[in-house]
Design a protein around this nucleic acid. Structure first.
Lengths: 342, 342
DNA sequence: CTGTTAGCGCCTTCAT
DNA sequence: ATGAAGGCGCTAACAG
């Protein structure tokens, strides 16, 4: 490997001169610079990224920590990453996708700091070791979604108006005459599930409805979204045929609901209305009619959180900001009024 | 920042002992190891990634070099990344998504090596500076798609059977009676466009058809895929109404074709058949009927290329392999026989 | 404007 | 099984 020293020697200058030619941190006479650059090219020299990072204590990389179903990206992740990358690109940062499992991380050999200047954490859980760890090491952090309570006043986050959105869904369905609604919520350990439940219940209580707790179910992380949607719907609709609407955590769960409805001979939206929290970008021939959704905007979440993180990385002192990205109801074909003649 | 030295001092041992506790490169007595680990936890110590990488000359990171439309990921990229990440995950590597523009890279300050052990390069162009550069620096490389000719015998790649697949499309359409076919190919600088053209033309010539060169068009990188599909279709079908089929580079181009057909009052597939090279995962209400496609398998491409790259990184000597992932025709609703009574 | 001297935090010989 | 010393390639602080 060819180093700065080789270039310096060949050009008849000192290492620091070569360093400064590349870093442009101090003025170098034109002739010297050109000579150095010329020799560097001849020798095919490139400054070593790691050595540089070690010296300046910056990596120019931000991390994105995802925990997906079997680490598979969904449409939402895709939009999100597009937002993140776009902003990284503008500001000259790179993105490290972090999907190393907790399990793997606990191997001693791998308990190392991450090569990043900051990190975006998606879908925090109630006792998230990722947050605890980064926070302890003073690594700039932006969380997507509501952080666990103990951290809520300590870090920046970008979130949707989940509570309010859930209330809106409830009001929307109630207004259309639905009284027995099945809510297939996110896994209980995700902070988002609590937010949604809160808004949802408040809306129901506001109109004096004694809502049966039983009809809010939380996905287990052991089940895939599709399975959860399918199995739960079959079971619940069999037990309680008066259910006329289902609200789901995401579009895959909704797909499971569609399949269940089809299997049970129920028509959407005539017999069953479906609404999903989703970025609305999933279309599949199976998803007919098109899914009414509370439309998350993955790309905006991605770009906003990245801006926030980079701002924090560059800032002198710690700053805290919260950004709420509103999600709105997008009515498509999967919801309808309840027929009076039931 | 707390370093190895601090831990060593607190534990009453030497730096190298601490180092070996973490790296497990040489045996350490149980008591010492536990004491060190204990103190490390108390002090919240984590080995520094950059320092470690500098010393051992490994990063544990692989790079993925993408050049998309405005750096936006498509469905294909998504599947591809899922394949890559899955393999990274299994083998304990991390993924760096590299979308820094050429333009940006040319700023002197940024002409630095990448912090990766190897790189996957997507969609090579005929004179790809990315390949040239990595190759010159002896960085393990896997290319997705056919590399430029000068490198074809020098590096590993994973490709689809593009030439053969294009021939199959041609035969398929000819067999259904189509004689005037519009081929909206990939940009000319992408090596894949040549591959496809080759197979396509051979198939046409085989049945003795003098095919008019004019009907193969290449997307300009200045146009978005959708615009290219739309504008070209409108123009070509206006000039030559006898065209009964369109083959497209990807599903977004196909979407443009659908829009054009709709605008011109043509029905798909009755008046116009459409086939796309696509991973078949794009569905949108606009894409009705479902698109017949030569189905790329992004996930397999991703995982195979990653396996190949990691194998190469770990290998003692340079190895070269080629992997061909077949793509097959998936007939859906957008293609039909030509009516005889034309 | 340029050179010299110390590190950055870890790993790696070579000792013991 | 453990220490001590030198080096990975670069930057930074101080000189001039």
């Amino acid at each position: 490997m060819i180093t700065m020293y080789d270039v310096a020697k060949a050009a008849g200058v000192s290492k620091s001169t070569v360093s400064n030619v590349f870093s442009q941190k101090r003025p170098i006479s034109k002739e010297v610079r050109e000579r150095v650059l010329d020799i560097a090219k001849q020798l095919n020299y490139k400054p070593n990224y790691m050595a540089r990072s070690l010296a300046i204590k910056e990596t120019g990389i931000i991390g994105l920590s995802l925990i997906g179903e079997k680490i598979k990206f969904s449409q939402f992740h895709l939009s999100f990453m597009n937002g993140v990358l776009n902003e990284c690109y503008k500001q000259g940062y790179r993105l490290l996708v972090n999907t190393l499992s907790e399990e793997y991380k606990h191997q001693v050999s791998n308990v190392a700091s991450d090569p990043v200047d900051g990190e975006i954490i998606l879908a925090p859980s109630k006792n998230d070791s990722r947050i605890r760890e980064k926070e302890a090491n003073n690594i700039p952090l932006v969380v997507i979604g509501k952080p666990p309570e103990e951290f809520e006043d300590k870090l920046s986050y970008v979130d949707n108006n989940n509570s309010q959105a859930a209330a809106q869904v409830a009001e929307y369905l109630l207004e259309m005459g639905h009284e027995n609604i099945l809510f297939l919520n996110a896994p209980k350990i995700r902070t988002v599930s609590g937010e949604r439940e809160k808004g949802y219940m408040e809306a129901l209580e506001k109109i004096g409805m004694k809502h049966n707790q039983q009809t809010i179910l939380y996905r287990s992380e052991k089940l895939t979204s599709i399975d959860f949607g399918f199995k739960t719907t079959v079971k619940m609709l069999t037990d309680n045929p008066r259910i006329t609407a289902v609200v789901t955590d995401n579009d895959k769960v909704a797909l499971g609901v569609y399949r269940a409805a089809k299997g049970m001979g129920l028509s959407i939206p005539n017999d069953l209305s479906v609404v999903a929290f989703s970025d609305g970008s999933m279309f599949s021939p199976e998803l007919t009619p098109p899914l009414t959704c509370m439309r998350l905007n993955g790309e905006v979440l991605g770009s906003e959180s990245t801006k926030l993180l980079l701002e924090q990385i560059k800032a002198e002192h710690k700053i805290m900001k919260r950004i709420i990205v509103p999600i709105e109801l997008e009515e498509r074909g999967s919801t309808a009024r309840v027929e009076n003649n039931t």
